[in-house]
Design a protein around this nucleic acid. Structure first.
Length: 265
DNA sequence: AGCCAGGCTGACG
DNA sequence: CGTCAGCATGGC
């Protein structure tokens, strides 16, 4: 039962999730209170890996966005994950103003210190700490164990709000922009982080995160040198209801140099 | 050495 | 509404 998705690209290199490991050629992590590998074929796994979705028609949605078509063609095995919302939220609070390598370090340190321990093929795996666990941490100790700097108070503050009843999972069923505004009331969650949580955790495929790479790409290829917010709305308008899936190809191609973001050669 | 990284917050126009 | 300094840390 081979999947058509590229496990290395999606789980290791795409910066949607940061705690997967290569264990003797199997890609594994603790997800949703269990061990999950790219070989699993149960309902949870199929949902997480977005197996049911048809990605082939995304090319048709690119419209005037020629560079998006190119990015998609270069990355046929890239999938957008359906992560547990809390896991996406924590990872992308840590992502703010950090590079991918360092995000991976922070996420793994957080899980190793405070998450539940699992094992796969003799290797220990760690899940994400619960909101309850995180909300009780001392900020100084957290910063000692996980060198996340000023983000420590965001993690703890957000965990407290979740524990106090913030309806995180429910936002999956609310309209995109309403869910986005709600997320932005959490400490450490601005527009960009909210968009990533919507896309990777809350199944809002119409979410279009604009980070520094996508911003540069849109400036140079569309001469839209405006705010990230305007870029976001413009991308949604052009690319439509699954623009987030296209965004992942654009982001990865831009960040890794697969496409040249500097000049429109 | 110094700029940059999947930005956010609060202050100030 | 928009702009902007400050922020922790480490990669390159």
């Amino acid at each position: 039962m081979e999947r058509q998705f590229d496990a290395v690209l999606t789980l290791m290199d795409s910066a949607q999730v940061f705690h997967f490991q290569n264990i003797n050629g199997v890609y594994a992590a603790a997800v949703g209170g269990r061990v999950l590998t790219d070989r699993d074929d149960d309902p949870f796994a199929r949902d997480y890996f977005d197996d049911e979705r048809d990605y082939s028609h995304l090319l048709d949605a690119c419209g005037e966005f020629e560079i998006a078509r190119r990015a998609l063609l270069m990355l046929p095995g890239l999938r957008v994950l359906n992560q547990p919302p809390w896991e996406a939220l924590i990872q992308f609070i840590l992502s703010a103003n950090n590079n991918v390598k360092r995000i991976r370090t922070l996420v793994n340190d957080l899980c190793r210190h405070y998450g539940e321990e699992f094992e796969y093929d003799g290797v220990k795996l760690y899940g994400f700490p619960s909101p309850d666990t995180l909300s009780k941490l001392d900020e100084e100790k957290l910063r000692q164990n996980v060198t996340c700097g000023y983000r420590a108070k965001y993690l703890i503050g957000t965990a407290k709000m979740i524990k106090d009843g913030f309806p995180l999972d429910f936002l999956r069923f609310r309209p995109h922009e309403e869910a986005r505004k709600m997320l932005m009331t959490l400490p450490g969650v601005g527009g960009k982080v909210a968009d990533c949580v919507l896309l990777f955790g809350l199944r809002h495929a119409s979410s279009f995160p604009v980070d520094v790479w996508v911003e540069r790409l849109m400036e140079n290829w569309f001469h839209i040198s405006s705010s990230r917010e305007k870029m976001r709305l413009e991308a949604i308008r052009i690319l439509g209801s699954e623009c987030g899936l296209i965004q992942q190809a654009l982001f990865h191609a831009a960040r890794t140099g697969l496409i040249d973001i500097e000049n429109k050669g």
